[in-house]
Simulated assay, not measured.
Amino acid sequence: MKIVLAGGSGFIGKKLTDLLITKGHEVVILTRKKLVPMYNETYVTWLKEGAKPEEELDNVDVFINLAGVSINAGRWSHHHQKQIYESRMKATTELLRIIKVLKYKPSTLINASAIGIYPSSLDTTYTEDSQATANDFLGKTVRDWEATAKRAETIGVRTVFMRFGVILGNEGGALPLMTMPYEFFIGGTVGTGKQWVSWVHVTDVVQAILFAIENDHLNGPINVTAPTPIRMRDFGKTVAHVLKRPHWIPVPSFAMKLVLGQKSKLVLEGQRVVPKVLIEEKFDFQFPTLHKALEDLLK
């Protein structure tokens, strides 16, 4: 298949590009930068003045949208929150414009999303059937992001929302920051420790995206989390066990709020999210448990 990828130079995008090319797909990456191909992919300029990417795209089967400013980078100032929100809306709107003007429409749009759409809770389990949505910054961002991408359905394009959990990987995501205190022998429970961490190994993330492409009966939201969410205190204990470090110095909530501001909600609050669709569709998780995931990533 010919697959167009927005956000291909990011943490997930690089691994996804490698996987897709390994599987024999042709990958075209939309970019604003001049990049040197690493996996036999090709590049098309977009989101720059005068750029007309639609003129270089034909017979596309699938669009994948991973574009947007990372929520893990930087403090959540008002300016950074604006960048996070607007980058997603702008990229998704432009993708829709491109799709609409193409003579031959793709069959599928795979759009990134996040479990931040679900409200924080200590006792609720969320699946794709859950209707509750968060009213905070991240909840609004994800809700608007999905609503924008959903407009592709009006022109006959199957649309899937990959609601990513806390993605664990060595090259990016949350893991390097979460393990750093343990590397220096000062790791411990963050906040109350009761908050849920709905995590997922980056390998399972890219495999889940490929799974959504290959199974064309799937549409709408798909929770991309491991089937075994875990409490924060147990997450920390597992990190300590794998790294053979102590789990002893707690990090109080006020300290996290002081350092991270509003972004502290990412670690002080959480949701218990279960990947019901992937489980029912018999998706093969390579890393279904946290211990197995961390042994792969940290050893």
Rank of each mutant, 00 (worst) to 15 (best):
K244E: 08
K100M: 00
T133A: 03
R88D: 03
T189R: 02
A212V: 04
N40R: 15
G169L: 12
R272F: 01
N215V: 02
P119E: 06
W76R: 01
R32V: 10
I98T: 14
I115W: 08
G8C: 09
I230Y: 03
G68L: 10
S253D: 13
F285K: 11
L258K: 14
A73R: 15
K15C: 00
K14H: 08
L177H: 14
Q271E: 14
E49C: 08
V44N: 03
H79D: 13
P221N: 06
P288H: 07
A149N: 08
I21Y: 04
L175Q: 14
E183V: 12
A240E: 15
K23I: 06
W46H: 09
M232D: 07
T192D: 14
F63C: 06
T45K: 12
P275R: 06
T17H: 03
N223G: 11
F211V: 06
M180F: 13
T289K: 09
F63A: 01
W196S: 12
T289Q: 09
A293D: 10
F285Y: 15
V239K: 09
G165V: 02
T179Q: 09
D216N: 12
F161D: 12
R231G: 03
L260I: 04
Y104R: 15
Y118C: 00
V259Q: 10
T133S: 07
T203R: 12
I117N: 03
R245P: 11
I12M: 04
P250R: 07
A147C: 01
T228V: 00
M38P: 00
V267R: 08
R32G: 09
A112H: 00
V60I: 15
Y43R: 01
G188C: 09
V44D: 05
S120I: 00
V202E: 15
Q286D: 05
P119T: 02
L278D: 12
N215D: 07
L96M: 09
E56L: 03
V36D: 06
F164N: 05
F137Y: 10
A51T: 11
K48L: 14
G191A: 05
V142P: 07
E54F: 04
F184N: 07
K282F: 01
A174E: 04
A255H: 00
A73N: 13
T141L: 15
K100N: 14
G139P: 12
S198R: 14
I12V: 14
W145N: 11
Q83T: 04
Q262L: 04
K244N: 15
V197R: 02
S107C: 01
Y39L: 02
R151G: 01
Q271R: 10
N59I: 01
